[in-house]
Design a binder for these strands. Structure first.
Lengths: 226, 226
DNA sequence: ATTTTAATTTGATCAACATCACTTTTTAAA
DNA sequence: TTTAAAAAGTGATGTTGATCAAATTAAAAT
């Protein structure tokens, strides 16, 4: 198998787009691609953080465990970086990441990543922008989660998958009811009840994991009102 | 009044510590210091974001408003940067910041800040580290807030002020009961009740805003158990 | 000093959602 | 195909903390 070089990669991140040929070569020599099946762990909380990860294809959740409970922090769709905060911010991984769908990921050596930040200001700036936007999103999620009621949060999540992840109003939910609960800070039972209520009311048409949005308008209303 | 130059500033950030003389001069020519009284707004949500702010002295809260309710995102003690995510991540400020105590702050021109990132890799790397650590803290706070009960959150907050902000077990709470509620996602009534219960039980000694921790051990237990 | 305004406390009631217990359905394994 | 195991649905009950209402205290303003 011929190793794909970063030079020829057609799904470069915005940051990598600013690297020159030499830097791309350096990156290519210090990264490795791996494929994760649905459910497989990519980053394990409490293990040593060792690589920056760039997702080329797939869908990933990040989650943090605390007192046996765990909470989903984020759902990340390729192409995107994964785990920069936990890799650069701490020696030990502060959260886990696992594949929600089959996922292809490049593992980039930290030393190389640091070197690129050091040598290429445009690269560094793109990484900074990315971190800033991430943090803003995190703030928004956190505020929503603590201020909206479950109906609003469930509506939010359905719209999130439809609009941001799958770009269509009909999709297969890539998470269980229990994970859905971990994402919005509630229990699987409550998620089940709310989803079924939405189904009854004709807002969505649902069979198992298959969801189709039937009333986008009403769902947005519920999302906004909370 | 003689303008204090960044060169002679003795509370430089770690990042600024990596700047050379020329870059320090550039920074000094493109920043301005201002003093905010307790309660004054430093960053206003929904206004245009225009400067990176470096806090030299004081204490600040950042908060996000949504549906008339607002939530405190963070309490930031000088010396520290303020508002990098909202300034670099969006044209419009996504959150507000206001002084909890009298605060001295340097306003740094965005263009200059970007230039420093571009020209000095060590500077950029320090900023990146700072953003990463911030994001990890934000994750922890968010998980705690949605998984702990109010007793645990109130205990957390008392310990936070004692350990991280004032470095002593006796201090004057720089926020109202209502702000305390916004910080942990509850109401002023609930905060009042819990604080008074802690007072009754001898965990703290409280008179108005003055708080003294009497039982550090027990408070930590409550904080951990949630 | 007195009035006004805001912050805090306290009590009573209520609603949202968790928890528990159990059934049903789906998926995976043997 | 059958069995086992996980996921999802449903009802009954309970708890936490919100909400509403009012009193008290503290802080500003005149």
């Amino acid at each position: 198998m011929v190793k794909e070089t970063c030079l020829s990669c057609d799904i470069k991140s915005a940051a990598v787009g600013f690297l020159d040929e030499l830097q791309l070569k350096l990156l290519g020599e210090n990264c490795a691609e791996a494929v994760f099946k649905k459910g497989e762990t990519i980053i394990k909380q409490d293990s040593l953080s060792s690589n920056i990860i760039y997702l080329k294809e797939g869908l990933v959740k990040t989650s943090m465990e605390w007192n046996q409970k765990h909470q989903i922090l984020n759902i990340i769709k390729a192409p995107a970086y994964l785990g920069i905060p936990t890799t650069l911010g701490d020696k030990i991984n502060q959260y886990s990441a696992s594949a929600l769908l089959e996922t292809r990921a490049c593992f980039i050596d930290i030393g190389t990543f640091k070197m690129l930040i050091d040598r290429n200001g445009k690269f560094a700036y793109e990484i900074i922008m990315h971190l800033c936007q991430n943090e803003l999103n995190q703030y928004r999620r956190c505020v929503a989660r603590s201020q909206k009621h479950v109906n609003g949060l469930v509506a939010d999540t359905i719209l999130f998958f439809a609009n941001d992840i799958f770009n269509k109003s009909s999709f297969s939910l890539p998470i269980s009811r229990s994970e859905f609960g971990d994402l919005i800070g509630t229990t699987q039972e409550t998620v089940s009840r709310v989803l079924n209520a939405f189904n009854e009311d004709g807002l969505i048409e649902m069979k198992g994991k298959a969801i189709e949005i039937k009333n986008h308008e009403m769902l947005s209303q519920i999302s906004i009102k909370g």
